[in-house]
């Protein structure tokens, strides 16, 4: 992997326990959670989860299996209702909103186990995500009014443009389920981007990718952040990816944040090493 080293981002501590990249320091964080927690029965899956994500930050969430990473994504997108705490998206509380509404407010996500519309074409997958932007009534669709043709053409062009991020235009007419694994993951990212989010949640985007694909993905994630000027939060087990592009990394264990900071802070943190490798035997 021949990657040019990126200049290190300087982190600014927040009044709370959160950190933001220096360039986002004077802006309001796009996402802020306060004491977020959820219990499944007697098990506290996530507790006291505090995080602030800057408007153009790439944040990483790591932790051993079962630490509660995906649960946090499900909480952020209101798939689960939090037992405790608040989620502020650009300063607005998302409590009581449906998953659909949260998406419209600006959170888009991908899934750990890919959830594409498998029988539909790649293009249709993206067009469905553009559904809210493509405004025309059912009547003008039935009567095939000029409005229908115009809006459809705009949506189609936009979808093709989005697909071009990953050079996927030639695949537009293929059923999404027939794509190779890596391409399916990329399509999910394109589909999430099509909803015009301000925060993109990527759940293990590099799972099942080979090293060269992963390296390409890293470049693309940074490219997406730069072109769309959005915040990205990702869960990943591939440490090359996390350490390579994430500006702030949070480490989760048993539903609690045990460390927060830049990649260097994390790598030398004894708590993190303990969570991953176990405690050093005394003596």
């Amino acid at each position: 992997m021949s990657r040019t080293p990126r200049p290190k981002t300087k982190l600014v501590p927040q009044p709370t326990t959160n950190y933001l990249p220096e360039r986002d320091a004077d802006k309001r964080p796009i996402l802020e959670t306060r004491h977020l927690g959820i219990d499944f029965g007697g098990l506290s899956a996530v507790s006291d989860f505090n995080v602030a994500v800057g408007p153009t930050e790439i944040a990483g969430l790591i932790g051993p299996n079962g630490a509660g990473k995906t649960t946090i994504f499900n909480l952020l997108t209101n798939v689960y209702k939090p037992t405790r705490g608040t989620i502020l998206l650009d300063g607005i509380d998302t409590a009581g909103k449906s998953t659909t509404e949260v998406n419209r407010m600006g959170i888009a996500r991908t899934f750990q186990n890919i959830r594409l519309f498998r029988q539909l074409s790649v293009l249709d997958n993206v067009l469905i995500a553009l559904n809210n932007e493509t405004r025309y009534s059912a009547l003008s669709a039935i009567l095939r009014l000029p409005e229908y043709w115009r809006r459809e053409r705009i949506a189609r062009d936009r979808a093709m443009e989005l697909l071009s991020i990953f050079d996927m235009q030639p695949l537009a007419d293929q059923p999404a389920g027939s794509l190779p694994y890596g391409a399916q993951r990329r399509l999910e990212i394109v589909r999430a981007l099509a909803t015009n989010p301000s925060l993109l949640l990527l759940d293990e985007p590099a799972a099942g990718m080979n090293p060269s694909e992963t390296s390409e993905l890293m470049d693309n994630i940074v490219k997406i952040r730069d072109t769309f000027q959005i915040a990205i939060m990702l869960i990943e087990h591939d440490m090359n990816l996390v350490m390579g592009i994430c500006e702030v990394i949070g480490v989760l264990n048993f539903g609690r944040i045990i460390a927060k900071g830049t990649s260097d802070d994390i790598q030398s943190n004894p708590l993190v090493i303990e969570a991953y490798l176990g405690k050093k035997k005394e003596g």
């Binding site: 998406n103 959830r115 519309f117 249709d124 559904n131 059912a138 229908y148 999430a192």
Partner: peptide, 21 residues
């Protein structure tokens, strides 16, 4: 049309459908 695509997306994967608004 966009309505039909939305209907199909529910059949294909309702959770994903909600997640894209």
């Amino acid at each position: 049309s966009r309505h039909g695509r939305a209907i199909l997306s529910i059949r294909e994967n309702e959770i994903a459908s909600e997640s894209v608004g």
